[in-house]
Amino acid sequence: MTFSPELEARFEKFLAKYPADRKRSAVIPMLIYGQDEVGAITDELINEVAKRTGATPLQVTEVVGFYSMLHRKPQGKYHVQVCTNISCLLVGGAELWEQACKKTGLGHKETSKDGLISLEEVECMGACSWAPAVQVNYDFYHDVTPEQLDKLIDGLAAGKKPEQIAEVTKVSC
């Protein structure tokens, strides 16, 4: 399996982090960064990660199902994650999630036909004091209102990059 030079370099760096006989430690980092490039955790990716870390494909498969950020099905180019856990729930997280569903016509873990947007209702993402919060891929959005979410989704649907959407600002650097 071939990856971009950037990802290859990253994998090499990962594998160098752990003792020589402990390459299996790189399984999860390789899976999640690999998913970012491949689009999903494919059988091919599982086998490749297994091969490079000395784990068996079954051991890697066991790992994939355990972690909620690892997906066997391809997600959208923009994976919109809305937190509805307790801190967000108290300040409109549920309404925000409903709005996201209404706006996109998608449900939990569904992807738009054009592959642009996918939705996921997620557990606490660590933005409780700036709730309700949304993550698009790995970027955080704090204190999101339903109106802002609409703008964000409209912008993404219009082919804009998240940073080009003026109404909402991602907070993570």
């Binding site: 307790i86 801190s87 557990e123 606490c124 660590g126 409780c128 004091s129 700036w130 993570s172």
Partner: peptide
């Protein structure tokens, strides 16, 4: 850091 209601370690690293 995953305990619902908790977002401090994020700042400490950031």
């Amino acid at each position: 850091e995953s305990e619902p209601g908790t977002c401090k370690d994020r700042l400490l690293i950031e």
